[in-house]
Design a protein around this nucleic acid. Structure first.
Ligand code: ZN
Ligand code: ZN
Ligand code: ZN
Ligand code: ZN
Lengths: 162, 162
DNA sequence: TCGGAAATTGTTATTTTATAACAATTGTTA
DNA sequence: TAACAATTGTTATAAAATAACAATTTCCGA
């Protein structure tokens, strides 16, 4: 174990990622419908996480009709399939950087520009699992978010994301 | 280091805890007013975290007049002073179990009964700090929550909190 | 002790996030 | 094609959080 998989992957190329999502859903026997696929694409195309209503706006720009439940249901599906993550401290959603194997992830969230970096540090996950186990607590999910300033914003390079 | 301070402390005795909060605020030169003190008491008296509107209901039972901003401002003060924590995944607040030294804490949240256990595992905190530092990310706060089922609920002892 | 600035609380209105309930449509299968 | 399940559309509402401004209280110096 000379190189733990803690590296924050770059955002995936949306094309490849979507093709992979198609394959994954087919394997699993679930339907990545037009709507769900589009929501996933919107999230993967966005440089920052998006709220449900921001996604809804994009869908409407597409010409599609819809209301909040439309978006929330698509998001629910994508969460179940591990294709996106919910950032609970922000009430926002972001496309997963390593879809395929289910995980909760850890996130570095810039409070200035909104950019997010996804980590998957097994040591952190394991420590939390151990703490839970020591207390006979059945751990079902983890929400781990670090709030602060990204390298770009520390250098004053970027002010605020669009 | 034979015994790291990762033990989840029991909820403090509200009387003692409030006296301590009084002292802390005096030291710091900030005012733990009637309202703020009462909100803190409500949280420490509650077996489970409370939402802002639930706190507002209790305040109204007290006979006090008020609206959401009243509660949110009190909560903001208590958060700043490290006397309470916000559980972002639940939109709820809980009294801190180890007030005095500022920390973000880690929380085991039971999805069945709502009970919460507060941990303060320095190793987890440190790992997150290290991950952030490795990416030149300035970490300002951490949100660490584990969702699942508490020991009581696993044994079917308790169904749902009031 | 009086008056003015600052901090705190009250009040009204609104925004933002999320869900409930039911109808319409689409897909699947017998 | 008829029946059934899954998905999406639609309307309405609930729940969480904040904006803006007024009233009150506290603090401090004149
Ligand atoms: Zn991921
Ligand atoms: Zn940034
Ligand atoms: Zn605490
Ligand atoms: Zn429980």
């Amino acid at each position: 174990m000379f190189s733990l998989d803690t590296a924050a992957s770059p955002p995936p190329d949306p094309r490849q990622a979507l093709a992979r999502a198609d394959a994954l859903c087919q394997e699993r026997g679930v339907r990545l419908t037009e709507l769900r696929r589009r929501v996933l694409e919107i999230l993967w195309n966005s440089p920052t996480p998006l709220g449900a209503y921001a996604i809804l706006d994009v869908l409407r720009e597409d010409g599609r009709t819809g209301a909040p439940p439309t978006v929330y249901r698509a998001l629910e599906f994508l969460l179940e399939q591990g294709l996106i993550h919910r950032l609970t401290s922000q009430s926002m959603f972001t496309g997963c950087r390593q879809p395929g194997s289910r995980h909760d992830g850890q996130f570095l969230i810039c409070q200035d520009c909104g950019q997010v970096d996804e980590l998957n540090n097994p040591a952190i996950e394991e420590l939390l699992r151990a703490e839970a186990a020591a207390r006979e607590f059945e751990a079902l999910a983890q929400r781990v978010e670090v709030l602060g300033r990204c390298p770009d914003c520390r250098r004053g390079a970027i002010d605020h994301a669009a």
